[in-house]
Design a binder for these strands. Sequence first.
DNA 1: GATGAACTAAACTGGTCAGTCTATTGTACC
DNA 2: GGTACAATAGACTGACCAGTTTAGTTCATC
Lengths: 205, 205
Amino acid sequence: MNISVPLKKGRKFDQVIAGAREVFLREGFEGASVDQIARDAGVSKATLYSYFPDKQALFMAVLTSQCQMQSEQAMGIEILQRPVPEALYSIARSFLNFLMSDFSIQVFRVCVAESNRFPELGRAFYDSGPKQALDQIAAYLGSEKVARELKIDDPYMAADQFLQLCRADMLLRRILNVDTDDSPDKMDRIARETVATFLARYRRA
Amino acid sequence: MNISVPLKKGRKFDQVIAGAREVFLREGFEGASVDQIARDAGVSKATLYSYFPDKQALFMAVLTSQCQMQSEQAMGIEILQRPVPEALYSIARSFLNFLMSDFSIQVFRVCVAESNRFPELGRAFYDSGPKQALDQIAAYLGSEKVARELKIDDPYMAADQFLQLCRADMLLRRILNVDTDDSPDKMDRIARETVATFLARYRRA
DNA sequence: GATGAACTAAACTGGTCAGTCTATTGTACC
DNA sequence: GGTACAATAGACTGACCAGTTTAGTTCATC
């Protein structure tokens, strides 16, 4: 009847993923126990193991689906029609907003922590997040519209610098659980300073 | 007889720390077993437990001593006497060199991973590493010598931007275990681009 | 209301691990 | 050579945990 129900093996599939996401992001791979995941998911351990062959597979399923979600966080095309400085500011602002979210911080932490144990994980995270952002900004910076106002020889290097400027010390502090001012005002200021520095370097004389 | 021997409780203390560093940095906190640490250190478990009350204390001792070492990685004063662009380039280059070392990457990974479980750890790492760097660069950027050539209203914001530009995508890739070009040439280029962008923004008209 | 698949709780297995304990051996010093 | 501490190997305890199994329950569907 309900066509939108995915073709997964059973009704509790999404519950399992949700519980596992919760626990894995909070505790990391080693720190999370399967019993706890089952409890959090409101599901029996046997059910969980009917979906996934083992803990690793569940872990990878959760994190690659999170990376998938992350990569769908695309830049609105309408932003890019605006004047370059405004567009840059908007990009910086929304990028920063995303970076500072609990979601993004937790996924980052776990991916960094387990990128030794699960080599594919670091790659999957990089490709679905930082690389997407880099590609999109580089494409924008390489566009004809931008070329009229900015002089950019290497769009990837420029995009990299732009994104680095956005990140700022504030992000590092959040990642390390150090108290920090992450008010909208502060984030605004970082976005403005990012654009100011970026334009100073790349604006046409 | 040997005065340089530290006044720790026994002769094997340093061995314990060395073994623990090795294993913790490779495996993380949960992934490392005390038996393995003792084996790596060439020491019995009982000896290890005569120095440290439990695994957590050992972990913190290792990492805070690593952070200590990190913070002693100070900027040579002679660099700062050179002309500003040259000084900036040298700072960028040696900062990058340090950031990309196995040591620094491993410590960072473990601190990020465990900063939830050990809140003091994230703080200790931040204070002994990133914060030191920020303070030192900000002090330099706020100095009179620099003020003659650069116009900097907020030395901390400027220092933050400078350090962010150094980090670059390359660092993120290494942290996530993604293959990357980290040749001296590449690092040189990043340092030069960092200085170029920084000067474009802050050089006096 | 019968059928079969999905789900359940709970017990169980085999393994690992943190931390303790014991009995013994080295080592330094008087 | 006697005293006292440092260190050792290895056995042991109690806890936890991944993954399996069993015997029974829910639920959609016909």
